[in-house]
Design a binder for these strands. Structure first.
Length: 272
DNA sequence: ATCGCCTCCTGCGCGC
DNA sequence: TGCGCGCAGGAGGCGA
């Protein structure tokens, strides 16, 4: 499920229910995630107020006065607010119960996600410290991509998906942004011009912002229904459209595999 | 430093 | 209806 817009939608959906509330109880139903959930998480957090929920890349950061929980949703993870006492279903891993009767529930069938604790500043954590800029921040632009790519022979699509280059560009939006910028995903990163990277950076920002705004429209449902965000309602130009026709030129959308990930592009519109 | 490949895991849709 | 197969929105870690 989660690309950056889904993670941000999750953050916006859960934060108002749990920020500045005290944790009364933590239940680790199944702590086997990508890395084991620390067994002492209950004693670390019970009785403590959750100060803030923030986000860095696709990591959700739950800030307490004595440290931070770093959580990732992996490929299939989700977090929702449920009422205290809601029975666990399959793949519900962890509950944080708060003193207002709300409960933050972590669900992850494939268990590629994580929930870790650090007593230090989260930006110093090994998972965080080498990350590139946030795509929606002013420090990310075409100049940045151009400068980072000069020695890189790798194809531009896996290049922009590398979190050391820029965070939050997942497999779907990498294909979508390259389509919008008219750039072939197989083109070597160092061969893309500054001008092309400026267009690409702007398209990455535009697509992520639009997607976050759409996620926001499902925010109300997010809390009380089955937790399905508006992912599938989004209009995608190329992703998953192998064999279908390009909206702009009627050419047939191509599907290839790059770095073990599916890529989609229009052979006519993406010649840059 | 850079790159390609492998891995973790479950669920689903497809073809037979 | 059942089964086997391939594929899935992430990303750390490895060897070369």
């Amino acid at each position: 499920m989660p690309e950056l817009p889904e993670v941000e939608t999750t953050r916006q959906g859960i934060a108002p229910h749990i920020e500045n509330k005290h944790i009364t109880n933590i239940t680790i139903n199944n702590g086997r995630l990508r890395w084991p959930v620390p067994a002492d998480l209950p004693e670390l957090l019970e009785g403590k107020p959750l100060l803030n929920v923030s986000r860095r890349a696709k990591y959700l950061l739950f800030e307490f006065e004595h440290g931070t929980v770093i959580a990732h949703l992996g490929m299939s993870g989700s977090m929702r607010i449920v009422s205290a006492g809601t029975v666990f279903k399959k793949h519900d891993h962890i509950d944080w119960q708060f003193d207002n009767g709300q409960c933050l529930r972590y669900h992850d069938p494939r268990r590629f996600g994580c929930m870790l604790w650090t007593p230090d500043a989260p930006e110093q954590h090994t998972l965080i410290k080498n990350l590139g800029p946030e795509p929606l921040h002013d420090t990310f632009d075409g100049k940045h991509l151009h400068q980072k790519s000069r020695t890189r022979s790798i194809a531009v699509k896996p290049f922009i998906m590398n979190s050391a280059v820029v965070v939050g560009v997942g497999n779907i939006y990498a294909s979508e942004a390259l389509y919008a910028a008219g750039i072939r995903p197989t083109r070597s990163a160092k061969c893309i011009t500054l001008q092309q990277y400026c267009v690409l950076a702007e398209e990455i920002k535009r697509i992520l912002e639009k997607s976050i705004a759409q996620g926001g429209t499902t925010l109300r449902d997010f809390v009380n229904s089955d937790g399905q965000p508006g992912y599938f309602a989004q209009k995608l130009s190329v992703y998953g459209r192998k064999g279908e026709t390009c909206n702009a030129c009627n050419s047939t959308i191509k599907h290839i595999v790059q770095a073990q990930r599916a890529s989609y592009y229009c052979p006519t519109c993406q010649t840059g």
